[in-house]
């Protein structure tokens, strides 16, 4: 299982273990959309245990961000390591997402 879902207060947190890529992105998408449908509105995806993300992984994060925003919710990305941070910067997606240094910051109101 690449993704673990847990709840911290009112925030649904996902840990991405290993990688978010073309082969498993739909699994994360399904989990988050199910939670959204179930009424969750605040989401954090934590990448502290993530090795790499490919272009389709970036794509699914964009989709989720849009879906969550459309429901009046909020998605934050946390704990991107240096490589992943550069990935977001290079693709200019750092302007698209709210990116937090760590989980603590992501959980703040």
């Amino acid at each position: 299982m690449s993704f673990r879902e847990r709840t911290v207060g009112r925030v649904t947190v996902y840990d991405v273990d290993g990688q978010l890529i073309v082969g498993n992105r739909h699994e994360l998408k399904r989990m988050v959309l199910d939670a959204l449908e179930g009424g969750a509105r605040r989401f954090v995806i934590d990448f502290s245990r993530t090795g790499y993300i490919d272009s389709s992984g970036l794509g699914v994060l964009i989709t989720l961000s849009k879906e969550i925003r459309a429901q009046g919710g909020d998605l934050r990305l946390a704990s991107l390591n240096r490589d992943l941070t550069r990935l977001f910067e290079l693709t200019k997606l750092d302007t698209f997402f709210r990116i937090c240094d760590d989980l603590g910051e992501a959980l703040e109101e």
């Binding site: 990688q19 993530t50 090795g51 390591n81 240096r82």
Partner: peptide, 13 residues
């Protein structure tokens, strides 16, 4: 990944 342990290294086998 540059500074923390390498969780993915183990996965990669």
């Amino acid at each position: 990944m540059a500074t923390t342990g390498d969780p993915s290294l183990a996965r990669a086998g």
